[in-house]
Deep mutational scan, measured.
Amino acid sequence: MAMNGTITTWFKDKGFGFIKDENGDNRYFHVIKVANPDLIKKDAAVTFEPTTNNKGLSAYAVKVVPL
Protein backbone atom coordinates (compact mmCIF):
# COMPACT_ATOMS: atom_id res chain seq x y z
CA MET A 1 0.00 0.00 0.00
CA ALA A 2 1.47 3.34 -1.06
CA MET A 3 2.59 5.84 1.57
CA ASN A 4 3.43 9.53 1.53
CA GLY A 5 6.58 11.08 2.88
CA THR A 6 9.23 13.78 2.61
CA ILE A 7 12.86 13.47 1.57
CA THR A 8 14.87 14.47 4.65
CA THR A 9 18.37 13.62 3.42
CA TRP A 10 19.77 13.25 -0.11
CA PHE A 11 23.35 12.20 -0.89
CA LYS A 12 23.44 12.92 -4.64
CA ASP A 13 27.07 11.83 -5.00
CA LYS A 14 26.26 8.46 -3.40
CA GLY A 15 22.82 8.00 -4.99
CA PHE A 16 20.79 7.41 -1.85
CA GLY A 17 18.85 9.22 0.82
CA PHE A 18 16.17 8.97 3.46
CA ILE A 19 12.44 9.62 3.50
CA LYS A 20 10.42 10.43 6.62
CA ASP A 21 7.17 8.52 6.15
CA GLU A 22 3.69 9.49 7.33
CA ASN A 23 4.29 7.59 10.60
CA GLY A 24 7.46 9.56 11.35
CA ASP A 25 9.81 6.67 10.52
CA ASN A 26 12.94 7.16 8.40
CA ARG A 27 13.23 4.96 5.31
CA TYR A 28 16.26 4.40 3.08
CA PHE A 29 15.86 4.82 -0.68
CA HIS A 30 18.21 4.46 -3.66
CA VAL A 31 18.09 6.57 -6.82
CA ILE A 32 17.40 3.49 -9.00
CA LYS A 33 14.07 3.06 -7.14
CA VAL A 34 12.90 6.60 -8.06
CA ALA A 35 10.65 7.08 -11.11
CA ASN A 36 11.66 10.74 -11.63
CA PRO A 37 15.17 11.10 -10.15
CA ASP A 38 15.75 14.53 -11.69
CA LEU A 39 13.26 15.95 -9.14
CA ILE A 40 14.97 14.54 -6.03
CA LYS A 41 15.81 17.23 -3.47
CA LYS A 42 15.66 17.75 0.28
CA ASP A 43 12.13 18.47 1.58
CA ALA A 44 10.46 17.20 -1.62
CA ALA A 45 7.16 15.36 -1.14
CA VAL A 46 7.10 11.74 -2.35
CA THR A 47 4.86 8.72 -2.64
CA PHE A 48 6.37 5.24 -2.31
CA GLU A 49 5.83 1.61 -1.49
CA PRO A 50 7.14 0.68 1.98
CA THR A 51 9.35 -2.37 2.47
CA THR A 52 12.19 -3.61 4.64
CA ASN A 53 15.63 -4.89 3.79
CA ASN A 54 18.47 -6.41 5.82
CA LYS A 55 19.30 -2.95 7.22
CA GLY A 56 15.77 -1.89 8.17
CA LEU A 57 12.98 0.20 6.69
CA SER A 58 13.26 1.17 3.04
CA ALA A 59 11.20 2.44 0.11
CA TYR A 60 10.75 1.47 -3.54
CA ALA A 61 8.58 2.72 -6.43
CA VAL A 62 9.38 6.23 -5.18
CA LYS A 63 7.79 9.14 -7.05
CA VAL A 64 8.67 12.74 -6.30
CA VAL A 65 5.49 14.85 -6.31
CA PRO A 66 6.05 17.77 -8.73
CA LEU A 67 5.34 21.23 -7.35
Rank of each mutant, 00 (worst) to 15 (best):
T9M: 14
K12T: 07
L57D: 04
A2L: 14
K14Q: 09
L67N: 13
L57R: 06
L67V: 13
I32G: 15
L57F: 06
P37L: 05
N36L: 04
N4K: 14
M1W: 10
V64S: 02
D43N: 14
G24H: 05
E22P: 04
L39T: 06
F48E: 01
T51F: 14
K42Q: 09
F16Q: 02
A59C: 13
R27T: 01
K55C: 13
N26I: 15
I7L: 02
V65H: 11
P37H: 05
F48W: 01
S58V: 10
S58I: 08
F48L: 03
V65W: 12
R27D: 00
E22D: 07
M1C: 13
K42W: 06
W10N: 00
V64W: 02
W10F: 11
R27E: 00
L57A: 05
K14P: 05
M3S: 05
G56F: 09
W10A: 01
H30E: 11
E49W: 15
K20R: 14
K55R: 14
M1Y: 12
E49I: 15
Y60R: 15
D38M: 10
G24T: 03
Y28E: 03
A45T: 11
L67C: 13
M1I: 12
G5N: 01
K42P: 08
I32K: 15
D43M: 11
V62S: 02
N53C: 10
V34G: 04
W10Y: 09
K42T: 09
V34K: 03
E49K: 15
N26S: 13
K41M: 10
N53S: 13
P50C: 05
W10V: 04
T6V: 14
T51D: 09
T52H: 12
L67W: 13
N54E: 13
T9S: 14
D13Y: 11
A59D: 02
F29L: 03
K12C: 10
V64D: 00
Y28Q: 03
P50Q: 04
A44L: 06
L67H: 13
R27W: 10
P50T: 04
E49V: 15
T8S: 09
T47A: 05
D21E: 01
K14R: 13
K55P: 03
A44G: 05
F29V: 04
F48M: 02
A44H: 04
F48C: 02
N23V: 07
W10I: 04
N4T: 13
F48G: 00
F29A: 00
D43S: 10
N23R: 10
K33E: 15
K42I: 14
I40L: 13
N36S: 05
V46F: 00
F16N: 02
K55Y: 15
I40S: 02
K14N: 06
A45P: 11
L67Y: 13
L39P: 03
K14F: 11
V31A: 08
S58Q: 10
P66M: 11
K42Y: 06
L67R: 12
F48K: 00
R27V: 05
F48V: 00
N36M: 05
E49G: 06
I32L: 15
K42N: 06
P66S: 13
E49P: 01
Y60E: 15
M3A: 04
A2I: 15
E22N: 07
K42L: 13
I19L: 08
G15F: 06
V34R: 03
N53E: 07
V65M: 12
K14G: 06
V46P: 00
D21S: 03
A61V: 06
I7C: 02
G5A: 03
N54P: 12
V62L: 05
A61S: 10
N26D: 10
T47C: 08
G56L: 08
K55H: 14
F16R: 02
D38R: 11
K63E: 09
N36Q: 06
N26K: 13
V62E: 00
I19V: 03
W10M: 03
T9D: 09
A44D: 03
K12I: 08
A61Y: 09
F48D: 01
V31Y: 10
M3C: 07
M1V: 13
Y60C: 13
V46G: 01
A45S: 11
M1P: 12
G5E: 00
K42A: 08
M1F: 11
N23Q: 08
K20G: 04
G56N: 06
D38T: 11
T8V: 14
Y60D: 15
P50N: 02
T52R: 13
G56H: 07
G17V: 02
N36A: 04
F11D: 06
R27Y: 10
K42R: 12
F11G: 01
K20T: 14
E22M: 08
G56S: 06
G15C: 08
L67D: 13
K33Y: 15
N53Y: 08
I32N: 15
D38W: 15
K63L: 11
K41D: 06
F48N: 00
T51V: 14
D21A: 04
A2Q: 13
D13K: 12
K20P: 00
Y60Q: 15
L39S: 08
Y60L: 13
P66I: 13
M3E: 02
N4F: 12
V46K: 01
T8D: 06
P50H: 04
D43H: 14
N26A: 09
A59E: 02
F29W: 02
D21F: 02
K41R: 14
T51N: 09
N54K: 14
T52K: 13
W10E: 01
T52C: 13
N26H: 12
F29D: 00
A59Y: 03
L67T: 13
N26Q: 12
E22C: 10
F16A: 03
N36W: 05
K41I: 08
H30P: 05
H30D: 11
R27Q: 01
Y60T: 15
V34C: 11
T51W: 15
T52S: 14
N54G: 12
